[in-house]
Amino acid sequence: MTRRGALQLVAAVSGVLAVALVVRSLAEGAEAIDVRSHHLTHAVLILGGAAAALALTAANRRPDSLPEKPQWLLPAILGPLGGMVLMVPTFYPYMNAHPTVHALSHLGHISAGFVTAWCGERYRVRIGWTTTLFLEAMAVGAAFGFGVTR
């Protein structure tokens, strides 16, 4: 298998796994889950979306020497912000009770991860990795205090 083919496979597997998690939560119906576990689940979904985007961009890598494309930078930053907004614990009780909305919000997390990584790499090579790293750190970090007390 070529490097490009392997990367495309990684992208597909990451995306499929993330979407499978969404379908699973839809199939299981209403569920009670504590805020910390919920945040961590979202971090996994975000990672799935971001991994798919990074693998895809690596398979179609732009040359290093290409200048920056500023139009991609704002979505690369708004992606993490969107991801954080979807992790507002105030919405969690409602989402736990409504599986379809819950599944849609999970798709939102996958999209936030994908947009962050994809747009970052489109902006400039290696920036998608950076934005992904920081989005993931924020998502995991949220589990230790955002709507969570000791």
């Binding site: 954080m84 105030t90 205090g145 709507g147 007390t149 000791r150």
Partner: peptide, 21 residues
């Protein structure tokens, strides 16, 4: 960004608990 979002949400929803530490 993380603490900013958390504080902003806490401003909108005073019932939201945040870990002070």
């Amino acid at each position: 960004m993380l603490v900013g979002v958390a504080l902003f949400v806490r401003w909108l929803d005073p019932t939201l608990p945040l870990d002070p530490l």
